[in-house]
């Protein structure tokens, strides 16, 4: 059952990822990305990360991507024009595949292939555990991220406001 679920959601993630890269229209790309995120949320659940799966749905799929869709609709972005250096760019493709191959070989070499992911083997990802870790071990980084968010809000307002002159 675990394997079946992994296959289904991994397939969804990869297909949506490919679709993100090859779709011409930004809205299609945005929806593909939402598909990837939803599939990843399901995979997090399989890995025992309850809270992180919910956060993935709420923060990524429910808020950040709504912002993207909003901006695409607001700017009425049309389909993409063919780039001038399109052909030159595809020269990078072999390098990418090579990179992927190296990473895959590294993973296959270094990780024990016998270790299986079994649902329920790791239950340390509940909201309780995350909260305890956030407010003890990781308290300083947590507070710093709140300042980061504040700066981001200020930056967004300054960048997007109407010029007063």
């Amino acid at each position: 059952m675990d394997a079946l679920l992994f296959m289904i959601f991994a397939a969804i993630a990869v297909v949506c990822g490919i679709s993100l890269v090859i779709q011409k229209h930004p809205i299609s790309s945005a929806l593909s990305l939402i598909g990837v995120m939803a599939a990843l949320a399901a995979l997090y659940l399989l890995l025992g990360g309850e809270f992180i799966a919910a956060a993935q749905l709420i923060v990524y799929a429910g808020a950040i991507m709504v912002l993207f869709v909003f901006v695409i609709m607001l700017l009425n972005a049309g389909t993409e024009k063919r780039g001038r250096r399109m052909l030159a760019n595809y020269a990078d493709l072999p390098i990418l595949l090579l990179f992927l191959g190296i990473v895959a070989a590294f993973i296959a070499n270094r990780m024990p292939p016998t270790e299986q992911v079994i649902f329920g083997n790791f239950k340390g990802g509940t909201a309780l555990d995350i909260g305890r870790a956030l407010f003890t071990t990781y308290l300083l980084p947590f507070e710093v991220t709140s300042i980061l968010i504040l700066i981001a809000i200020l930056g967004a307002i300054v960048l997007a406001r109407k010029e007063i002159d």
Binding site: I27, A54, L57, I58, G62, V69, T126
Partner: peptide
């Protein structure tokens, strides 16, 4: 679910795409 509240928040947040897509 252990996190039923978060689940509902997450799923109901996705409903906005229906309205946005229909409008667009």
């Amino acid at each position: 679910l252990n996190m039923g509240v978060l689940f509902i928040l997450g799923i109901s947040g996705m409903g906005v795409y229906a309205v946005a897509l229909a409008g667009w």
